[in-house]
Amino acid sequence: MPDLLSFMLVSIVVIVVPGPDTAVALRNTLFGGRAAGVSTALGIAAGQVVWALAASAGMVAVLVASEPLFLAVKYAGAAYLVWLGIQALREAFRPSPLAPGQGGPRQPPQRRITPSAACRQGLVSDLGNPKMAVFFSSLLPQFVPAGGETFSALLFLGLVFALMTFLWLALYAALVARLGDVLRLPGVRRTVEAVTGVLLVGLGLRIAAEQR
Rank of each mutant, 00 (worst) to 15 (best):
A153E: 10
L89K: 10
Q110F: 11
I86V: 15
L5S: 15
I12R: 08
M132K: 09
I113K: 00
Q107Y: 11
F143H: 05
L42D: 01
S66Q: 00
A41M: 01
P2K: 13
V160R: 05
V176K: 07
L163T: 14
L200N: 01
A208H: 02
L89W: 11
A173D: 09
A79W: 10
L71K: 06
Q110T: 08
A153H: 09
I86S: 07
G32Q: 02
P18E: 02
E149A: 13
G197A: 12
T22K: 05
Y75C: 06
A46V: 07
F135T: 02
I44K: 11
G148P: 14
L123G: 05
V176P: 01
Q110H: 10
G33P: 00
V38L: 00
G47S: 12
L179Q: 14
A79G: 06
A170G: 02
S6H: 14
V82H: 05
A177S: 12
T114H: 01
R212M: 12
L123Q: 04
R178L: 13
S116L: 15
S56N: 03
W83Y: 10
P130G: 12
D3F: 15
V134C: 02
L9S: 12
L139K: 04
S152L: 15
A118S: 05
V17S: 15
F136C: 12
I12Q: 12
P2D: 14
S6M: 15
A72N: 04
G180D: 12
I113Q: 00
V64H: 07
A99M: 13
L163P: 00
Q107L: 15
P130L: 13
Q142A: 09
S96N: 14
Q48V: 10
R112D: 00
P115S: 01
I207K: 03
A162Q: 06
T29F: 01
V17W: 11
V24Y: 03
P109Y: 10
L200G: 05
E193Y: 08
P109K: 10
A72Y: 03
T22R: 03
L159W: 09
Q211Y: 05
F156C: 10
L167N: 02
Y172C: 07
R190Q: 08
G103K: 07
V176M: 13
L155T: 03
D126W: 09
L4M: 09
L9I: 13
L154S: 09
N28G: 00
L123H: 04
M59G: 00
G19N: 03
G43K: 06
T22Q: 06
A174P: 00
I113W: 00
G204I: 04
A46C: 08
L89Q: 08
L185I: 14
P2T: 15
S96H: 14
F70W: 02
K131I: 07
G19V: 06
T114N: 00
W51F: 15
A76L: 11
L171R: 03
G197L: 14
L159K: 05
A99V: 06
G197C: 13
A170L: 06
Y80M: 05
A177C: 03
V182L: 15
L163F: 11
I15M: 14
L9D: 10
L159Y: 05
E91M: 10
V82M: 11
V62A: 07
G128Q: 12
